[in-house]
Design a protein around this nucleic acid. Sequence first.
DNA 1: TCCATATTTCTAGAATTATCAAAATATATG
DNA 2: CATATATTTTGATAATTCTAGAAATATGGA
Lengths: 106, 106
Amino acid sequence: MEINTAIGVFSALSQETRLDVFQALVKAGPDGMMAGALAKSVDCPASTLSFHLKELLQAQLIRADKQGRAIYYAVDYGGVREMIDFLLISCCDGDPRLTGPYVIKG
Amino acid sequence: MEINTAIGVFSALSQETRLDVFQALVKAGPDGMMAGALAKSVDCPASTLSFHLKELLQAQLIRADKQGRAIYYAVDYGGVREMIDFLLISCCDGDPRLTGPYVIKG
DNA sequence: TCCATATTTCTAGAATTATCAAAATATATG
DNA sequence: CATATATTTTGATAATTCTAGAAATATGGA
């Protein structure tokens, strides 16, 4: 992962509404949630939420699936795995003093 | 970890100079680096670097150790482990579809 | 077609963050 | 003490990000 990609990802998670949205979508699983349901869940005006959803999309932390007039948002499983990998391997150098018990040594 | 703490941590990593500094300090190991050496390493004016180091300190991603007139900065190993734990467990719910092979199931 | 629903885009202003020269602080050395 | 070194703080400006109402777009149903 490119360093600028990583900055975009961390930036996407560095805002309360977006972190709330992300956690809600993780809980929701692969089917995700409608934008409107998310707006209620995180108590945020639709236009503001839309701005934040776009940030999360650009960071490839979530994906969107249009169904009729609704849009379902769900976690982008592959994108999140890439981010975690970048953090543990590229940023933390796979050093177990930093990663704790999480990194499987190759 | 409190959600606002986590936001501070992601925010600290969402800026190029700071991510560069963090990676340099991971590479440097527990002894860390002098502020001046870091400034050269990431090509950044002293006062700007000082601003960014303070952000990383507040996020508890690095620590400072004054030795004479020099200040040695090093990774805060415990702080980083807490951050990784928050990301994998609280944010990603320990879901292996998100964490990949990294989370050890309890 | 007309109306309601779901969501985004636009826009302007508010708030936050980043930059860096200059001044200040602290320490070492001759 | 005087000077050089290492770093931070201040302060002013520039740049970016966030907010949310209003308008626009798209779809579904009566």
